[in-house]
Amino acid sequence: MSKLEQVLILDPPNDLRFKGPFTDVVTATLKLKNPSDRRVCFKVKTTAPRRYCVRPNSGVIDAGASVTISVMLQPFDYDPNEKSKHKFMVQTMYAPPTITDTEAMWKDAKPDELMDSKLRCVFELPSE
């Protein structure tokens, strides 16, 4: 199956780092840059949807524009034996000329129209 290469430039590109202690909300920022000359729709997905609050969790990025996303890790009891296996995925597609129903647009998208990038979460403790 042929797959489109991710058009957006992610910063950071591979890892989302969260600094402990995790007694309060910890925010990591993810920058999405659209270097193309077309509008790009994006959607953020995660393997642990209840642990994170993501703003915005979807949207449209104009040609040449950037969007900064806040990924807020909710407070939890950190267990040093449990290294995080959480992952994020940024799914994107080129925006159609008109968007009337975002949900339908994603649902009707063909697999070869979708692009995605995956990021791994890294938990850092101050003592480490």
Binding site: K45, T47, P49, C53, P56, N57, Q74, F88, K118
Partner: peptide, 14 residues
């Protein structure tokens, strides 16, 4: 591998 994970839509409200 990374591709074997199940991904869900991220929520914007906690």
């Amino acid at each position: 591998a990374l591709s074997e994970d199940e991904f869900y839509d991220a929520v914007s409200e906690s």
